[in-house]
Design a protein around this nucleic acid. Sequence first.
RNA 1: AGAGUCGGCCAGACGGUCGCGUUCCGUGGCCCUCGUCGGCCACGGGCCGAGGAACGUCCGGACUCCACAGGGCACGGUGGUGGCUAACGGCCACCCGGGGCGACCCGCGGGACAGUGCCACAGAGAGCAGACCGCCUCAUCGCGUGCGGUGAGGUAAGGGUGAAAGGGUGGUGUAAGAGACCACCAGCGGCCUGGGUGACCAGGUCGGCUCGGUAAACCCCACCGGGAGCAAGCCCAGAUAUGCGUGCGUUCGACGGCGGCCCGCCGGAGCACGCGGGUAGGGCGCUCGAGCCCGUCGGCAACGGCGGGCCUAGAUGGAUGACCGUCACCGCGCGCAGAGCAAUCGGCGCGCGGCACAGAAUCCGGCGUACCGGUCGGCUCUUCCC
RNA 2: UGGGGUAUGGUGUAAUUGGCAACACUAGUGAUUCUGGUUCACUCAUUCUAGGUUCGAGUCCUGGUACCCCAG
Length: 121
Amino acid sequence: MLPADRRLRTSADFAAVLRRRGRVSASAHLLIVHANRLPGRENLPSRVGFVVGKNVGNAVLRNRTKRRLREQCRARLALLVDGTDYVVRAQPAASGAPSSALGSALDAALADLSARGGERR
RNA sequence: AGAGUCGGCCAGACGGUCGCGUUCCGUGGCCCUCGUCGGCCACGGGCCGAGGAACGUCCGGACUCCACAGGGCACGGUGGUGGCUAACGGCCACCCGGGGCGACCCGCGGGACAGUGCCACAGAGAGCAGACCGCCUCAUCGCGUGCGGUGAGGUAAGGGUGAAAGGGUGGUGUAAGAGACCACCAGCGGCCUGGGUGACCAGGUCGGCUCGGUAAACCCCACCGGGAGCAAGCCCAGAUAUGCGUGCGUUCGACGGCGGCCCGCCGGAGCACGCGGGUAGGGCGCUCGAGCCCGUCGGCAACGGCGGGCCUAGAUGGAUGACCGUCACCGCGCGCAGAGCAAUCGGCGCGCGGCACAGAAUCCGGCGUACCGGUCGGCUCUUCCC
RNA sequence: UGGGGUAUGGUGUAAUUGGCAACACUAGUGAUUCUGGUUCACUCAUUCUAGGUUCGAGUCCUGGUACCCCAG
């Protein structure tokens, strides 16, 4: 899984990431990813948070979806940019999708993000 | 063998790789009010890590804080009896009523001579009953001489309406009838005897002859209930502005204890609303408890006593996951050989698919609800064999 | 955690103390018209669900399901 200090832990952090721009929806029926560089965290490792709403399913389904997403993110920690916080929002279809599909959706979103970042810089 | 009924248990198993959370040990680093159990961080290793319903939140408690002069009126809950329990609206046993051939199942199961209300439509009449048709008597009129009309009465046996029409059957009796009277039966009430802790049951005797339903309508009776809830509550660190406005108050008493109201008692100088300002970090509570397992004793049982053993999740954007392998289990398809006249049946192999309901958040005892299935046992009925 | 409420044709709402489930719009069918509109008539209900009380339940009681609101 993902260590606690690499996850978003407070409601304020989530709000800060979601409020600013930086949304990429790769395979929109599965995931929506938000990414933002928050001031004051430039040299700290990146963090990831997950949002799994009630439209995904009951508590068992929501928890399992969150765990599988965390596992996929753990395998891709090296791809994340330091100082950037991510929020992954699960769509209803994510609960039934195989983990490989979730992983490739994450890859696509991260590739899209790095391409955009290159353009802006 | 088939059909059924009741109850208990399980909730796929084993292994590999990479991870997460609590906690312990070791190594290293940093900090200080230097501790040989100080705090924090990193790495390595070890133990442990969701459920029978963790769920819904429908009841009951433990625990914590507040309140504990009292009285009255309300309010809510429960409702056969006896027991179990910390307690309960739960459980066990029994009683009564209903269903089933039976095992067994279902029941908010106190009171309708304390009172009030309601019983639509239909029907003559619906609650200290009621003459529409009918039946009978008398008077009178008519004629076709035993029938019809009219009037005055008697009558609850019959018809019809209704969920329900004030016992049932048979007889005596009568103008026709009627518990008016008699016998038996059903039911009600009183008394006596026996059994049972009791609800109640069985039997006997006497009585007036019969008394509607509805309290999941108001109500009456008995019993129970102080309030709030782990975001309870306690501690540490830290920030800001006893700021501004309005209203009510300072022994003519606001407000609070006090939950709904009243009386009364106690505290009592602030209280309520709006605007504005600040914070939203950490720790304890937090898991050893009416605990679980085994044995034994008491009890029909629920349950309890005694002895021995065990320690079994504590997260806080919230930890038990991801990817595989092997073997079980279920369904479908194909193949192989077999049993049988046949429908079909089980066995082996291969492939594909499936493997429920559902995720702890202070903790227990219940209830209710969801659920693929598997397994064990008790009992009942039917059929066959010995 | 505590408290309160709602569910009725496809949609939005009614239904005095229990007594034939009503209204508007929409949809469908038919009539009127050369056609369409308008108008008229008819059709469309497991009263959320499972039981119970009662002669009789949308209404009363119990359990369940879904949704909404309030306080912290």
